[in-house]
């Protein structure tokens, strides 16, 4: 199966190089969306072997992942699209677990679960409390029973994504793509499965994701998607 890895990166020049190099070593095609970084993320990712697109201003991770999807779909060989973090927290070696799961169950999407695997060692206490709560809300809204609905480590079958391409272009809350996508997939009867993943600590820098802002955004995305009757 031909796999394209889509990574969103914002000021990750220090972390992204080893991630891309490892992915290329493993034989994966990588597309990176530099989400308006002020550092050398673009040059570093390209030098490491990825194809890179640049957002000229910072739109946020969800928007960058959405662009990553579109870039991956430009590759006619691509059969599976995998999204993962560019900061080294997701292990490239675990991508094979997603592919195996897809083969085994025929899932349209496979989500990495930190609950089934090992979460990051330096996890904020609030994140430990809120992540299960948000997961429950998303499960209720989507009809799935996932143990961790918030991780960015995911695999999508191209044929399924292409079938719903119009949906990607009309996302209400692209910044909170994870939440909206899950509800829309659930509404359309897509098969979603999960695999255990082990999260590693970042080597350089700190995450820029604000927990409360993210939570509020997820709730807004859930609400807007639920009242949207386009799909």
């Amino acid at each position: 199966m031909s796999v394209v890895i889509a990574l969103a990166a914002y000021n990750e020049a220090k972390n992204i190089g080893p991630v891309i190099r490892r992915l290329v070593e493993l034989g994966y095609e990588c597309v990176v969306v530099d989400d308006g970084s002020a550092d050398d993320t673009f040059a570093t990712a390209e030098a490491a072997g990825a194809r890179v697109a640049r957002h000229h201003s910072n739109l946020g991770q969800g928007h960058a992942i959405l662009t990553g999807f579109m870039l991956a779909l430009l590759d006619p060989q691509c059969e599976i699209i995998v999204t993962m973090d560019s900061d080294g927290q997701h292990a490239p070696e675990e991508i094979v677990l997603f592919l195996d799961k897809m083969k085994e169950t025929g899932a349209d999407m496979v989500v990495g679960s930190r609950v089934l695997g090992r979460p990051a060692e330096r996890n904020h206490a609030l994140r430990r409390w809120f992540a299960p709560l948000y997961t429950q809300i998303l499960n209720r809204a989507s009809g799935y029973e996932l143990s961790d609905a918030l991780t960015g480590f995911r695999a999508f079958r191209r044929s399924s994504v292409e079938r719903e391409m119009a949906m990607l272009g009309q996302m209400l809350e692209p910044q909170y793509l994870t939440a909206e996508l899950l509800i829309r997939l659930g509404r359309r009867g897509f098969k979603v499965d999960e695999v255990a993943v082990n999260i590693r600590s970042r080597v350089h820098g700190v995450s820029t994701k604000g927990l409360l802002r993210m939570g509020f955004g997820i709730l807004r995305a859930v609400f807007r998607t639920l009242i949207d009757n386009r799909s």
Partner: peptide, 8 residues
């Protein structure tokens, strides 16, 4: 911004 990124 997305359209520009894709074109480039």
């Amino acid at each position: 911004v997305r359209e520009m990124a894709l074109v480039n």
